[in-house]
Nucleic acid binder design. Sequence first.
DNA 1: CAGATAATAGACACTGTGTTGATTATTCGT
DNA 2: ACGAATAATCAACACAGTGTCTATTATCTG
Lengths: 201, 201
Amino acid sequence: MRRAHHVGGDRRVRRTRAALSEAILSLLLERPYETITIQEIAERADLNRATFYLHYGSKEELLLAALEEQFDSLVAEGPSASPEQPIWGIEEDIQQTLDYVAEHAALYKVLLSERGTAYLMNRIVDYIAAHSESELRASLPPGAPTVAPLPLIARHFAGSFFALLVWWIQNDMPQPAAEMAEVIKNLCVGGLRWGIGLDQS
Amino acid sequence: MRRAHHVGGDRRVRRTRAALSEAILSLLLERPYETITIQEIAERADLNRATFYLHYGSKEELLLAALEEQFDSLVAEGPSASPEQPIWGIEEDIQQTLDYVAEHAALYKVLLSERGTAYLMNRIVDYIAAHSESELRASLPPGAPTVAPLPLIARHFAGSFFALLVWWIQNDMPQPAAEMAEVIKNLCVGGLRWGIGLDQS
DNA sequence: CAGATAATAGACACTGTGTTGATTATTCGT
DNA sequence: ACGAATAATCAACACAGTGTCTATTATCTG
């Protein structure tokens, strides 16, 4: 019955890394990235400063690792891979993403407005684009004509979704998640269907 | 006839600041922001380090100033404010923006992929959104029904435009600017017209 | 030209970094 | 439950870069 063995090596390592990630993210909620020192991170994680260097070479490295975890847990909620309703499976993802982000509003507001944007944006937009492109590909007859190449349509969709997401977060989520999801569905998925010519029928 | 007087105070100040901006941007082309020191910036600008502090309080401050100039010169090329062809004036902007970015490809590749993204993205997306929103407003009958609130449609447009722009730059501009502009026009402006119901006719 | 102001040069204390070697504590496999 | 392996601690180190200062020189503006 004793599981959770070998989940990723030494238990001490896992605990230490988790503490460091948590420390930097919690510091990020309080003040800008540049002003945060490795000393403070170690301090807040209740670890010796030398221990930090046992795991990461720089603040940057730790941040990327922490963001990666963050992204993974966002995606984990994510794409339940719709059955036979191709494009419309995306709508579920939109709803789930908004719900997830709303739960972690404070953190995402910081991540998106400051340091993390470059990384998170690339990561999220890439992910959404890849995800929606494969859905698109599956839902289209092979040689069907589209307004533009599929990867660009996917990017178009991902970009507008992300922009609306950022707007929503940075404006302190003026609408409830469900309502915003509706708007995004209308605009993005509508635009998507238009992009692949489904609206011409 | 002696103009260019009083363009912004002391000539020395203008020269110094310009040198600093140029220095940080050129360093940014060579290596990541974090590794650049104020010492080096001053050195490359051929200025005493103390002079730096006479003008900026930190590296960050200088970078923001430099980005602001960069953004201004991008916008300067920009919106020739279409006469009576509302939405279609946007098409010109798209073309001009791509041309401008293509000219400064190396710099923008760095700015968009690294440090600058957060700032530039907010700045550019805000600008495009505001610009397109006012064009939209002008081109629509007051009470006309739309798919979503105007500001969100504008954001949707700006986001997808920006995402495609980033994709294009980061993939080393696989298509010529003109061709990419066509794609963007098709997708974004098409989506925009669809968004405000012009496609239902 | 003269007064004002910007830039320089060198020095200063200070903060945070990255590394080291010796020591202690925890964990994992058997 | 034991013992070998290895992670974490602690104190100390040289070092790089920061931010500030004062006195001096160079340059601009009216």
